[in-house]
Simulated assay, not measured.
Amino acid sequence: MKITSEAITSKKRKIRITTFYYKNKNLYYDAQIYTLILEDPDDTAKRLFYTVADIYPRDRRALEQFDLIVAKDKVSLETHYRILSSIIGRNQPNEEELDQIIKPLSSELEIFSKMIGKYVDLHQVGNHMALVGDQSIFTCIESLLSLGDCLLTTSEAIDLCPLCAQVVTCIPACVDIFTAPVCLACEATGLGGCIVCLIAAYVCYDAALAVRNNCL
């Protein structure tokens, strides 16, 4: 799947977002990979490759954890996938359980890279980062944004549940994909108490339930 859109960030910057989505299910796991290519339409030198790779094992319990991979040097999109595949697939002594769970994503990233090479220039260069694990980060962020929208439009919500004020202050970080990790770290403060309160008070109930199921 490929989707292209343009948006204005919270800092009034124009941004073009091209999203590629890939999903594979087999007997051993479900895997999905998103890559967002974020560009400044007025300055092609400004580009970020942002990949999220999730895997859900069928033969063991998911840890619901993720690793953040960030690099300061610019690379081609092709190299971005090669680096991720190498990091995930390497054999290392005393590797943690999450490393074992995500290892199949190494080959999935290679397949994904070859597939999207038909639709995008793999030699274009940009900064790059990735979230890799067995937790759906995008689903969580989508739920947080829906909850924030409900809190902002339901006047009594924050009066009834003061901890939800923290959720609202973190929303700008969730809107801008560049700061998605900041969004998740920020929302962690007071989020549990906010959700419990909202569900008990039956205010923003559906949105709160979605956050509980996707983020907590």
Rank of each mutant, 00 (worst) to 15 (best):
L109S: 11
E110M: 11
I111T: 13
F112Y: 04
S113L: 01
S113I: 05
S113C: 11
G117M: 00
Y119S: 12
L122F: 03
Q124M: 08
Q124V: 03
Q124G: 03
V125Q: 07
G126M: 12
G126E: 03
G126S: 01
N127R: 14
A130Q: 02
A130F: 00
V132T: 13
D134L: 08
D134R: 05
Q135L: 15
I137S: 12
F138K: 13
F138M: 12
F138Q: 13
L147E: 05
D149C: 12
C150Q: 09
L152T: 15
L152P: 08
L152Q: 12
L152N: 15
T153N: 09
T154C: 13
T154E: 07
E156A: 10
E156I: 13
E156P: 07
E156W: 02
A157G: 10
A157H: 01
D159E: 09
C161R: 03
L163Y: 10
C164I: 11
A165N: 04
V167N: 03
T169Y: 12
T169C: 05
T169S: 15
C170G: 10
I171T: 13
A173V: 10
A173C: 10
C174L: 11
V175N: 14
D176C: 11
I177P: 06
I177N: 12
I177T: 15
F178D: 12
F178Y: 13
F178K: 07
T179N: 13
A180E: 03
C183P: 15
L184A: 12
L184R: 11
T189Y: 09
G192Q: 06
G192V: 06
G193H: 10
C194R: 09
I195P: 14
I195F: 04
I195E: 03
V196W: 12
V196K: 08
C197S: 06
A201W: 04
A201T: 13
Y202W: 08
V203F: 09
